[in-house]
């Protein structure tokens, strides 16, 4: 009985997770090395990967900073009432429930060229939608809860005794944070950052809607894969997809590592 269950689990994992990864790794090589390299070094592929890199860096930095600050406020701040904290706490999760396409649509509705705000910014020469800033905002929206959801439980668990002790002893806010709070939340922040990078790297729906997927302008790696598939250009799609998949597997390993550190911080 026990053997059967283990075997069945292996079969499910092999079919559902193993086979697709192996297939894409093989697909990228079906025209040899030149097919893979050719698909990857196309000017549009290089540009798309560059856009993705820019988005990942900007989004990770911004959301890590705001995520850690907001978690601190939501757990510790005395100037927020408990009811407001509870309300905000449930709003934090909302981006998880929003379909990425809808997330993109929201940004187009508020900042698109036909709206009041978008028109105002447009006349000042700032393009948001169908340009890089809009794509960043879309990704910021989608990845917003990730850091907070990792950091908040740890903050709640460690309590604020140590922090209070530090400030009673005369330490300033910053010193208390870096010397007392940071060492205990460090690995949760790392874990949240890895999740954010993975999600920002792979975001597709929201970016597709906001970017308009314009070649050499607003195309990212994932929207390029989409366009290649639509054009039946499967080998090229495969090579870009393989790079993305390799990136996610590397991030997955990093996650495992961060998780094991989180366990005994």
């Amino acid at each position: 009985m026990r053997r059967l269950w283990i075997l069945l689990t292996f079969v499910v994992f092999a079919l559902l997770l193993g086979a697709p990864v192996v297939r894409i790794a093989m697909g990228a090589w079906d025209q040899g090395w030149s097919g893979f390299a050719g698909g990857l070094t196309r000017p549009e592929a290089l540009h798309a990967l560059w856009m993705t890199t820019l988005i990942v860096i900007a989004v990770t930095v911004i959301n890590t900073f705001f995520g850690v600050m907001l978690s601190l406020y939501l757990v510790r701040a005395a100037w927020l009432g408990p009811k407001l904290k509870k309300l905000m706490n449930s709003i934090v999760d909302l981006p998880f429930a929003v379909s990425p396409v809808i997330g993109g649509l929201m940004i187009v509705l508020i900042l698109g060229p036909e709206t009041a705000l978008g028109g105002l910014l447009g006349s000042a020469g700032i393009k948001i939608v169908y340009a890089l800033p809009g794509m960043m905002i879309a990704t910021l929206f989608v990845t917003f809860p990730l850091v907070i959801r990792e950091v908040m439980p740890v903050l709640q668990e460690i309590g604020n005794q140590q922090e209070e002790a530090a400030s009673t002893l005369g330490a300033y806010g910053w010193t208390t944070f870096w010397r007392v709070t940071w060492p205990s939340i460090r690995w949760s922040v790392v874990y949240g950052v890895v999740l954010t990078v993975a999600r920002a790297l792979g975001e597709f729906g929201a970016v597709l809607v906001v970017s308009g997927n314009i070649l050499f302008k607003t195309q990212t790696a994932t929207t390029l894969v989409y366009q290649d598939v639509e054009n039946f250009n499967l080998t090229s799609a495969n090579s870009v997809a393989l790079v993305l998949a390799a990136g996610s597997v590397a991030l997955l390993l990093l996650m495992e590592w961060a998780k094991s550190r989180q366990g005994h911080h």
């Binding site: 997770l17 729906g205 799609a237 495969n238 996610s248």
Partner: peptide, 24 residues
Amino acid sequence: LLNSMVDLPFALPTAVAGLMILLL
């Protein structure tokens, strides 16, 4: 190994997942 593979669908870009299923 299996336990770390569980999170793969979260880490993988959804467009890549779609392409994988398409090929398979």
